[in-house]
Write a protein that binds this DNA or RNA. Structure first.
Lengths: 202, 202
DNA sequence: GTGAAAAGATGACATTTGTCATATCATAAT
DNA sequence: ATTATGATATGACAAATGTCATCTTTTCAC
């Protein structure tokens, strides 16, 4: 019998999956949560064999939970279950040595299959991710540029951004200009949109 | 036996729900799709008693499918199943006289219950929506202002916005200025953020 | 049918942005 | 030791943006 914990903040999917997994003779869902903090607390107590974690959850990202599971030395294997194939998330997941990374864009039977494979020691990655990995869309922005862009994203004018980051207004505009040129756009809005699309900016 | 059709583009949820609904003795899923066009085609052929439609799907919105079902005079009852409580969507759904409007933020049992109620002629609306409706956080922007803001949101410069809407650049700036003053902000970015927060802008 | 909004326009002006050249200093890589 | 890169800054200039006053037409409610 494989014991499972499910952390997924979309109730419809959470409850549907829970019931579905329970139908399998060799699977048992010992608990579920719709936020990261609850998940982390309960996983420590229940020590399930496999934890299925959504990434985007209130309070704590699934990836953060994965990090903690690893840091705490639990034997719980982690399967990340998320909506989109985003490189940044996938990289973090790999770094946290998760056992599986599935997309919600695949049928529920894939999840069941993945659980069994993971318990046999295999790692299961959605093929889309691997492809995505190879087509390196790496963040061209430096840390400072990102900081400036993040301020700009708040809708603040140059002066305020400068004040917030203890820079001169000119420097801020330089950074923005550098950002635009790297991203091939011509104003803040476009830069922000692009950076968000690529998840360089949250 | 109630015949169902399920249109949902997130495969994990689609397959999980299909299997779950099939477990109920009085429910039968006659078909499912992950895009609006397929859904519409098959609903016409299969004429299910209830169609469960996601809103955001490729090719055709669930709401569009609902409109067509109504226009074609089918007896198929529609339950909209969507992620967020957005007033605009809800209003369209009510206008299309859908029988139910559920959020994915509710457990799957709610859906099953809703299906049975709908077949008894009841309408089922998520309570969050009704609350949202009453707390009239009414949009102070006119249709035209919204259109301008939507263009601005694409990151386009004034000229291009003007060209796209067949307006003069000056008019566009006037509209933006009017928007800022109504919203109490001083630039596009802030206006867009505020409008999105209030769901006046998608 | 009058009056109030809303849609649309123009022109002028001040401010904010975006671009560019150029410079210093620190650090990391070869 | 030299070179590249990143962080930081200035000054100058052009282009885009935001503000205001003012004007016309259409539409819709009373």
């Amino acid at each position: 019998m494989i014991t499972l914990y499910l952390a997924e903040d979309q109730s419809m999917l959470n409850s549907a999956l829970t019931q579905l997994l329970e139908l399998e003779d060799d699977l048992h869902v010992v608990g579920s949560a719709s936020d990261g903090v609850t998940a982390w607390t309960e996983i420590q107590q229940l020590q399930p064999q496999v934890a299925i974690l959504d990434i985007e959850m209130p309070a704590l990202l699934g990836l953060d939970v994965a990090d903690r599971i690893k840091a705490a030395g639990l034997t719980t294997k982690v399967i990340i279950l998320t909506t989109f194939a985003q490189k940044a998330y996938f990289e973090r997941a790999v770094a946290a040595q998760v056992a599986g990374y599935l997309l919600k864009d695949s049928p529920s039977d894939d999840l069941i299959e993945a659980i069994r494979k993971v318990m046999q020691g295999q790692t299961v990655y959605a093929p889309e991710l691997v492809v995505n990995m190879l087509s390196a869309n790496n963040n061209p922005l430096t840390e400072r540029e990102l900081a400036v862009l993040a301020e700009a994203d708040k809708g603040l004018p140059t002066k305020t951004i400068a004040a917030n980051l203890f820079l001169s207004a000119g420097t801020v505009r330089n950074y923005l200009s550098a950002i635009f040129s790297k991203l091939g756009v011509h104003n803040r809005l476009e830069a922000i949109k692009l950076a968000k699309q690529n998840k360089w900016l949250v």
